[in-house]
Simulated scan of single mutants.
Amino acid sequence: MSNEVADANIRGTSSELEVKTHQKGLVLGSWAFGTANLIITLVISFLLWYLLIDPKVSGTNLYPQPFGLFLFWSILAAVFLAFCWEMWPLNRLTQPLKGLVSVIVGSGIALIAIFVLGFGYGSMDPAFTLGGPSAPGYTASGMIVLIGFYMWGMFAGNWGHWPWRDLKLEQPVVGIGEILLGLALTLIGYLVLIYPNVATWAKQDNVVMPLPMVVGWYYAVIVSCFMTANILDNWPWVSLFRSRWTQAIGSFFGNFILGTGIYWFFLFLLKTWLIPAQVQIKLGEGINQWPAQLGVTFVFWVLVWALMFGNYPDTGRAARDRTIRFVITFVLSLITFVFYTQGFAVGFLHEPAVSGSFGGDPLTFMDWLIYVMLVYVVYFESWGLKRR
């Protein structure tokens, strides 16, 4: 069962997410293929950052908003297209047309969502109003993506498209079912966790937890989902639960439990080693959001390892393989977080400083890297490269 679920998870919802054997391209071994994908992703990311996004170099004034909101919704659109709908019906196209159409469709989904919420619903609810960089709608709308990223991501990840695959359903019925169920779950999560924080009538006494803590804790739940579904081959859910439906339901609630542990562990690392004392004073209660800032670097490397490096190692020795993958991706995420926050973000990406040379917003920049990776590796199927 472990291998079946792993084959259906977010690193490879279907064979459509793998490099096609009939595609032409530079034939590379597994490590060279992964390295080439990573280099291409980074080069494209930095080029576009300086051309279009960088607050000092680009001159576009898109950072942090509306760039951030468009980025978040574009990533969620990629989850819809690639993992819920498994690229239906775009998988009938050949590259690079398939990639180009996917970017256009995904961007269209993102723009429609933003305009409907900001200028449609926002005309009735001031919390969703869009306008200047500090308009409340950027937070209110962006938090929908935060809640939805877990809800829709787990269908292909931990759930392996249960129950739709078990009912022998095909696309687009599978995708429609997942979109509707995800919408219902996202709405519930948003109304409970987010809306009492962002509504015009919001008061501290009305919230389950303050917004910074919601972001940090809930993103730790997302970390649990992506970590277990990818580098851990859906463990521990496949060990704890034997049937498909118990694995799905168990993982849904289990990620909240495991994610809570990850939240406190990340907060401990941040307060003890990763964030200087003077920065912690400046952040105040806002430090409760920073497990998300560390978590997104981990999610980036989890996806890199799964999508680019084929989830190495895969020797059949499950415990050993999972441990090696976890150690590699977690260490890389710690190195990335320290390098990024302690000078690189402020000095080279020209993001705002929190205190001294410490600063940046990993949730935005690392999500930018994730989005470019999804575009190149998933939408364009690593066009120009071929895994031997």
Rank of each mutant, 00 (worst) to 15 (best):
Y63V: 00
M124A: 14
T139G: 13
Y121N: 07
A113T: 09
T94P: 14
R92S: 13
I114N: 04
P89V: 11
G132Y: 05
F119C: 01
V116A: 15
G106N: 09
F80S: 05
I104W: 14
F83A: 05
F119K: 10
M124W: 15
S102Q: 13
F115Y: 14
I109F: 12
F83K: 06
I104A: 12
L97D: 07
V101F: 08
M124G: 10
T129S: 09
S107E: 08
Y63W: 09
F67P: 04
Y63S: 01
L90H: 12
L71V: 01
L97T: 13
N61G: 01
A113H: 13
S74M: 08
Q95A: 09
W73F: 14
Y138W: 11
M87W: 15
A113C: 14
L76N: 06
S123E: 12
L100M: 11
G118C: 02
G122V: 00
I109K: 07
W88P: 13
Y63R: 02
G68I: 01
Y121P: 12
P66N: 04
F128L: 10
G132T: 04
G106H: 05
F83L: 15
A113F: 12
A78R: 04
D125N: 15
L81D: 07
L100S: 07
G99L: 03
S107A: 08
M87I: 15
M87F: 15
L76E: 12
D125H: 11
G137A: 06
A113R: 09
L111K: 06
A78L: 09
F119T: 10
G137I: 00
V103C: 08
E86K: 15
L76Q: 09
I114T: 02
F72V: 04
S102R: 08
G68D: 11
G120I: 04
I75T: 02
G122K: 02
Q65V: 04
P66S: 07
P126T: 02
G122R: 00
N91C: 13
W85G: 00
S102Y: 10
L111S: 09
I112V: 14
T129N: 08
F80T: 04
T129G: 03
F80L: 14
G120V: 05
V79F: 05
G122S: 03
A82I: 11
G108A: 06
F83H: 12
A113V: 13
